[in-house]
Design a protein around this nucleic acid. Structure first.
Lengths: 201, 201
DNA sequence: GTCTATAGTGGGATAGAC
DNA sequence: GTCTATCCCACTATAGAC
C-alpha cells in the first residue's frame, strides 16, 4: 500500500502531490513499465531514495492513480446524471461529465485506462472491481433510456453500452490539452452522433 | 532492422512465424515493456539465444508487428471501399473491413495501436507515418461522404473522423475472441449508430 | 524529508560450440 | 537452427547518516 495515498481535494503544491501528478504524467507519456524510478526522481528533482519516502513501491503509484481516477469520474458522472431526470438529458450529461472530467485530468485517467492491467494481485482485483462499478453506472443510464423507449430496441443493450464507452474512452489516447479541440465541443459531438447519428437530415 | 521481417500470406507453421505470432500475443497481454525475452522464449519453447537468431533486437519485433498490422488493415479497407461507390455504403464497408480485419488478427492490431509509442528513433517515425497514412484513408472516405451531402455539415469534418475512429479503435482493448460478441454484428451496430444514431424512431 | 551508498535481481544481448 | 555460458547494465528497493 501507498504510505500516502492521494487525497482528492487536498490543497495543492505539497511535495506529496507533485509525486502523484508527475508519476501520472510520466506513466501516460511512456507507459508504466516504460517509466523508471530514475526518470521519475529526475523530473521531481529529487533522488530515487527520497521518492521512496512517499511511496513504498512503484506499483503503489499506479494503484493510487487508478483508484483516484475512478473515484473522480464516478463522482462527476453521478452528480451530473442525478441532476437530470429526462433519459436523453441524463445520457448527454453522462457523456459530458465523463469526457470533461477525464480530459481535464488526463494524466490520471489515461494512465488508469491504459495501464490498469499492469497491476498485480489484490491491487489489480480492486481496481478491476472499481472499473466494473463505473461501467455498471454507465450501463444503468443506458438501460433506463432503452427501457423508457428512448433508445432503439433493435440494438442489444450490451452493444449500446459498448459503443458509448468506445466513443468516449478512445479520446484519451489522442487528446492533447491546449490543442485545437475543446472538450465541451467534442462532448456535444459525441452526444449528437450517439443520439442522432451523423447522417444529414 | 529485423533479420526476418514478417511476410504476410506466407504458408504458416514455420518457426519464424511462430516467433512473430507469439510476440504479438504476449505484447498484447502484458504490454511491450511488460514482456521479457525470457517469457517470450519460454512460450516459444526455445532459449533466449535462439530467439536472437530470428530477430536482432526486441524492438524489431514491435516494429515488425506494427508495420504488418497497418499494411494489413490498409489493404483490407482499400479493397472494401473500392468495391462500393455510394458514400454511405463506402462508410459501412470501411467500418466492417477495419473492424473485422483488426479483430481477426487482434494480437497484431491491439499491440500496434497500444504500444506504437514505445518505439524509438526512425522506427517510431516510420510507423507514425504509416498510421497517418491509414488515418488519411479513413478521413478521405468521411470527407467524400460529407462533401456529397450524406453526412451532417453542422459537425466539423475533423470531429466526424475522430468519432468514427473512437468507435472502432477502443474495441481492440476489450474484445476477446471466442466471447459472446460477433465482429460482424458489432460492425453493423457501429455502422447503425454512426449513421442513424441510437435514438428510437 | 532528503541524502549517499549499495544491495540484489532481472533485464537485453552476445560468443562460440554443436 | 539451437544450445550453454556469460557479460554487463539498468532496474527496484533498502540501510542508515544528516
Amino acid at each position: 500500500m501507498a504510505k500516502h495515498p492521494p487525497r482528492t481535494g487536498t490543497p495543492d503544491g505539497t511535495t506529496a502531490e507533485r509525486v502523484w501528478a508527475v508519476s501520472a504524467q510520466l506513466f501516460r507519456e511512456k507507459g508504466y513499465h516504460g517509466t523508471t524510478t530514475r526518470e521519475l526522481a529526475e523530473r521531481l528533482e529529487m533522488t530515487r531514495a527520497s521518492l521512496y519516502y512517499y511511496v513504498s513501491k512503484k506499483e503503489d503509484l499506479l494503484y493510487g492513480i487508478c483508484t483516484e481516477a475512478l473515484h473522480h469520474v464516478m463522482d462527476a458522472v453521478r452528480t451530473a446524471t442525478d441532476a437530470e431526470s429526462d433519459p436523453r438529458e441524463r445520457l448527454r450529461a453522462l457523456i459530458r461529465a465523463q469526457l470533461i472530467s477525464s480530459l481535464t485530468e488526463i494524466d490520471l485517467h489515461a494512465t488508469m485506462l491504459l495501464n490498469l492491467h499492469q497491476l498485480t494481485g489484490d491491487q489489480l482485483k480492486e481496481v478491476i472491481a472499481l472499473r466494473d462499478e463505473y461501467e455498471a453506472l454507465v450501463g444503468g443510464v443506458v438501460r433506463d433510456a432503452q427501457a423508457a423507449g428512448v433508445l432503439r430496441d433493435d440494438l442489444a443493450l450490451r452493444n449500446l453500452i459498448l459503443v458509448l464507452l468506445n466513443m468516449v474512452n478512445w479520446t484519451l489516447t489522442w487528446y492533447r490539452p491546449g490543442g485545437p479541440l475543446q472538450p465541451e465541443e467534442f462532448a456535444r459531438v459525441i452526444g449528437e452522433v450517439y443520439l442522432e447519428g451523423a447522417t444529414a437530415r
